[in-house]
Design a protein around this nucleic acid. Sequence first.
DNA 1: CACGCCTAGGTAAGCGCTTTCCCGTCAGCG
DNA 2: CGCTGACGGGAAAGCGCTTACCTAGGCGTG
Lengths: 359, 359
Amino acid sequence: MTLVATHAAGVTREGAGVATLSDVARRAGVSPATASRVINGSSKPVTDELRERVLRAVAELQYVPNAHAQLLARSHRGAVGVIVHDVSDPYFSEITRGLQRVATDQGRLLMICNSYRDPERELEYVELLRGQQVAAIILAGSGYHDAGFTRLLNDKLAAYEATGGRVAVIGRHEHSGDAVMPDNRGGARLLGEEMCRLGHEGIGVVAGPQVLTTTTDRLTGLREALAAHGRELPEHRIRYAEFDRDSGAAATAALLDAEPGLTAIAALNDSMAIGALSLLRSRAVPVPDRISVFGFDDMPIARDVTPALTTVRLPLVEMGSRAMALALDAGGTRPRVESLAAELVRRDSSAQVQGRAHS
Amino acid sequence: MTLVATHAAGVTREGAGVATLSDVARRAGVSPATASRVINGSSKPVTDELRERVLRAVAELQYVPNAHAQLLARSHRGAVGVIVHDVSDPYFSEITRGLQRVATDQGRLLMICNSYRDPERELEYVELLRGQQVAAIILAGSGYHDAGFTRLLNDKLAAYEATGGRVAVIGRHEHSGDAVMPDNRGGARLLGEEMCRLGHEGIGVVAGPQVLTTTTDRLTGLREALAAHGRELPEHRIRYAEFDRDSGAAATAALLDAEPGLTAIAALNDSMAIGALSLLRSRAVPVPDRISVFGFDDMPIARDVTPALTTVRLPLVEMGSRAMALALDAGGTRPRVESLAAELVRRDSSAQVQGRAHS
DNA sequence: CACGCCTAGGTAAGCGCTTTCCCGTCAGCG
DNA sequence: CGCTGACGGGAAAGCGCTTACCTAGGCGTG
């Protein structure tokens, strides 16, 4: 089960007449204490006779315990909060799958919040989750180049941790606590290497939002690899856009118009790469014969587009499961940081530059 | 925000020392009542001086109200529960987007639960949501051919509605309340028509699970259209499998092996169709020249695979927003049923049968 | 046969918050 | 100048549940 909150807000008082524990107790002719005990199998023994009566009353009344009251009475800390940029983005779906798996194993409830890359909203969600008394908060997805925001966020998280909450982040270096770090820079270096190996010199980059650290990390890795081969990545060959398909297509179009000589396009995530492929197809530019296209992340559909996408695989599901494990495991000296390696996946969207040998 | 619960379970008592309202009140030198009033802007006026003091205390203590306590005290009914088969499936992502939009507009929190097509779990989630005091429950996704389960579910839903809860279903005819119904049968009829128009006679079907009403509805529509052209759809040309990519590929393989003469494959959803395309590619069967492939649903990636998928569009997002609107709008005579039409989308995966004229 | 102890059940005190009701104060009025 | 009424604030009663803590039997002992 997934709890999706769309944003806290106005509260209405609807409905009425829900059966309560006392109703059950009264009908069974026992005290609320006894009713409670049989209903959630307390360690205290109850005679079969009474248990029987209570269960019958529960069934007859279709009684369902009020979760809020239970949580309050138990000062519950059972659920785990997750803040991602957008679950419907496959990148986060995969991570979430990993989070979910571990959480389920431990019988934890997950509350997933979409920040839609709005730092403000991220802050709000931390508050909201704190108010929900979650046992841990997991922040997944790139951080922002915004010192003010980062400080604010860290303050809030620190306050949360100070009261016993646990925090784990995925792919953010700005936080001081437990973290799972995919190797964006190393992965991008792999990509750069590959492009050089294939003889590409006219390289254009379709990048994500400039404010995201993930974008800059990947750019850095790319630059490092190119530099090692004596090549550069001038700023005018980079187009910054949103991390989605349509923005990728638009950015590719702009890039192509401005730089007609390109032989390779590196999109900084797979969604954008798919947008790029789609644009190239619409312009009848053969891929990879005329232009090679590279993605990043290796989301599941990358293998289903045509040509299948050459990309960098990040162990998304594992990133999720590791992060959840960190968050739920109180032991160990903190902060713990786990790095996960990236891996190049060669498919059909990339090829040797036409008419050139290996440089 | 999305709340994803992974299944209720064990509860631990972690952390401590969270600031409470009384802490704030004490520090500000006011009563809890006053503190509460300034914190959530009650209608009762409070002097600026006191308000000031309370706000300062809140800031200093990093106070965040305990949501459970608030909900309990207010007998809140603000959130809406959603039960889907699997949010990471694009079909449901799209529907969820629609649900979310309307919910957000009305300041509602959404709790999304994944049943993973397990009726048992669906039942459990209804209970869980009831316990969460949600204002409405929305069930999205095909129902099951299982009278026992259906009765059980309807009983539970009825009990929920009896206590003021609202229920809306998407694509299930077995429930008696409000419903949004995509025209599966009509859409499939469109598909059948198109296949006949293109001259296909050797038609194989890659179907979803036989227990789902959606599967049988779509098959029925297909049969109706074929019958109108004097054709049949024998059972041995249908393969039942799970509604996902890999199952689609496997079913296609089995179908092809058993029925070599096929000129068209109708997959009963796009994921399966994509699996079919992938298998055909791996066997070097040209699509659509040798075999045409048809999908169903028109999920976003359908246009990005190669060849782009001919499919039947269902207004997924709208299905979601309508259902949420129904669930949140108490007025009107119930049950209200809204039907949404399907539409054929011709793309590149389908073509006239080779060497045959329009039949 | 009396004492103590174990046991099943009930009583009641919260969990943290909201909200009704009431009280004291002060301004305005006749 | 006394009375009324408006108004800001506090006391307290829950919301529905859990869980010490207590009580009253029933049994086993010496």
